[in-house]
């Protein structure tokens, strides 16, 4: 048997393994609760039976309402968590995140355009495709910022500009769409929700998210090398331009798919990698998959929590993640300032 030793100390590695197992356990529980929780009063037995081909109302609820919602929680969270970890690695900055950098708002803009101008009705691909195109547009800004070696301040300010523009254009698109529910719909897109999703959303979101995460993973080594700076990374044989491109496109795919399914859910990509760093270490490559797992846990748990706190659906998913994430963001800024 080949002896496998690790670069990191053994105790730290055991710590990471334990954390992963705990995260998985929480995920399984949260997923089950998410599946069992809902407006209609179905017994757990009936729902599980319904899941595996049971007929009648329980089967319908299990397969068409509960399962898509629970699955999307995993998919959306995984995409956002992994995106945050990779962006932070690329910018070598703990403030980088799809929401903060405006990618989520731009993806939301794309989704709104597809939905309210009838494109999504005539072609089911239009929604995710437009969301990803929107995400790519702001990802292009990220690409340029990264090439220019932007620091934390430039990154956050650019994110504010991009997000404001995307939000304004979303409002404009909705008012042009002459939709009587425009205002309430807009809130939904800007705050994000997993309510009333179907298996179709899952079918679109899953492959795009997996593709995005795969792209991010393909850049993982390069992100580690960037810990030493760009010249040193290049001298280690890393094609920095290609790493940058893969991260930016991967983030656009995963975030675009997540936003097409759930609207703008912010701060998941900020909080998750930051919290997991103390368990997995700081090397970006080691954080991408755990952040996908952690993101899935966070979004699923948050989606359970809002249904317990407000069973009638007054509390939106994105509201909770923002309430959690925004103070965290401020805390990070204060901490960075005191370090500088």
């Amino acid at each position: 048997m080949v002896e496998v030793r690790s670069v990191v100390s053994e105790s730290r590695r055991d710590f990471a393994v334990t954390t992963t197992l705990i995260l998985f356990a929480i995920l399984v529980v949260a997923f089950a609760v998410s599946f069992l929780l809902g407006a209609s009063d179905q017994s757990a037995g009936a729902l599980f039976a319904g899941l595996f081909g049971g007929q009648g109302i329980a089967g319908l609820i299990a397969r068409e309402i509960r399962l898509p919602r629970a699955l999307l929680g995993l998919i959306v969270g995984a995409g956002l968590g992994a995106s945050g970890a990779a962006l932070q690695g690329l910018f070598r900055n703990p403030l980088a995140e799809p929401g903060v950098t405006g990618v989520t708002s731009s993806a939301g803009l794309g989704a709104v355009i597809a939905l309210y101008f009838g494109l999504a009705a005539s072609n089911p691909f239009a929604l995710p495709v437009f969301a990803i195109v929107g995400a790519l547009a702001s990802a292009a800004v990220l690409y340029l910022l990264s090439r220019a070696g932007a620091g934390a301040v430039a990154l956050v300010l650019a994110g504010v500009a991009v997000a404001s523009l995307a939000t304004a254009l979303t409002a404009l698109a909705l008012s042009f769409a002459k939709n009587p529910y425009a205002m309430s719909e807009m809130v939904l897109w800007m705050m994000g929700s997993l309510k009333d999703r179907t298996m179709t959303d899952v079918v679109f979101a899953l492959p795009l998210t997996l593709l995005g995460i795969a792209l991010l993973l393909s850049a993982a080594r390069g992100l580690d090398a960037l810990t030493l700076g760009e010249d040193a990374a290049e001298s280690l044989g890393v094609a920095v331009g290609s790493v940058r491109m893969r991260v930016v496109v991967g983030v656009a795919l995963a975030t675009g798919a997540a936003t097409a399914a759930a609207g703008a859910v912010s701060f998941v990509g900020l909080v998750v990698p930051h919290v997991l760093r103390r368990f997995y270490g700081y090397a970006p490559s080691r954080l991408i998959l755990p952040s996908a797992l952690g993101g899935a846990v966070l979004v699923t748990a948050a989606d359970v929590l809002i249904r317990i706190v407000a069973p009638d659906g007054q509390l939106l998913l994105g509201v909770l993640t923002a309430m959690l994430g925004a103070p965290f963001f401020l805390l990070l800024i204060f901490r960075l300032r005191s370090e500088a």
Binding site: R221, T227, L228, G281, Y282
Partner: peptide
């Protein structure tokens, strides 16, 4: 740019 373990940083030289 990240506070990685010293040994982990040295291992980047093996990339």
């Amino acid at each position: 740019h990240w506070p990685v373990e010293a040994r982990e940083l040295v291992a980047l030289g093996r990339l």
